[in-house]
Design a protein around this nucleic acid. Structure first.
Lengths: 101, 101
DNA sequence: GCAATATATTCCTTGCCAGTTATATAACTG
DNA sequence: CAGTTATATAACTGGCAAGGAATATATTGC
C-alpha cells in the first residue's frame, strides 16, 4: 500500500477523493456520503494522508480534509506512453494521416 | 481485482505492460526480464487478459502477448479533473494570469 | 506415438488489507 | 468539572491475492 497506485486502487478511497474534489470536508460529512463506518473512513483517510493525497487542519473538534492531488501526477506520468497508443487506435483517421504529419 | 485500477496497482503487472509497450513478447521472454517465476508470470498475464489489457495469439508452442491499452482510458478519465488541479498548483504563474485567460 | 519445449493450472501457504466493535483522545458546552 | 460531540486508534476477524512447487496441457519435430 506504499505506492499511489495501490492507494487509489481502493474504490472507497477514490470516492473520498472525488468528494474532496468539490470542497474540503470533515470526517462526518464524508461518512454521510460514503456508506462506510466512521472508523473505516478514518483509516482510509490515514492511508490517503500517508500518500500525500490529502491534507488536514483542525476546525474545533472537526478535522477538515482537503485534496492534495499532486501525487496523482505519478499515475498520469505512467499513463503517458499508453495514452498515445489508445488514442491512435480509437482514431482510425490518424493512421491514414500518419505519413503526412 | 475486477477493476483496471486494481489490476495495474500490482508492480509486476505494470512492469509487464511496460515491456509490452516496446513489442509483443512470449511468456518466456517476459519471464527473463521480470525476475518472477514462469507460473507467476502466467498468472499475472491471466489477470491482465481478464481486464482486457493484453491480447494473445499462438506462435507454435509459444504464446505472444501484445498490449491492448484501451482499458487504461478509464484511469485517464478518472484523473481528468485532478490533472487540472495539480497543473494549476505546480504552475504558479497561472495563478497570476488567472484573470487574464 | 514419443520426447522435448512452452505455457497454463492446481494446490497450498502466507501475509496483508478492509471491516467491525470497542475504546481512547481531544475539544467544545454548560 | 461533567457531559457531549468528533475523530482516531487498537484488537480482532475474514477474505483474498501473491508466491512457490508440482503437475497438467498443448504444440512441435522426429
Amino acid at each position: 500500500m506504499s505506492t499511489v497506485f495501490e492507494v487509489v486502487s481502493e474504490p472507497t478511497r477514490r470516492h473520498i477523493l472525488d468528494l474532496l474534489l468539490q470542497q474540503p470536508c470533515s470526517v462526518g460529512e464524508l461518512v454521510e456520503q460514503l456508506d462506510t463506518s466512521q472508523p473505516g473512513t478514518s483509516k482510509h483517510l490515514r492511508v490517503l494522508r500517508g500518500a500525500g493525497l490529502v491534507r488536514v487542519h483542525r476546525d474545533a473538534q472537526r478535522r477538515l480534509y482537503e485534496l492534495a492531488p499532486e501525487p496523482l501526477a505519478e499515475i498520469d506520468a505512467w499513463l503517458g506512453p499508453y495514452r498515445m497508443l489508445w488514442a491512435r487506435r480509437l482514431d482510425a483517421l490518424e493512421r491514414h494521416l500518419d505519413g503526412a504529419s
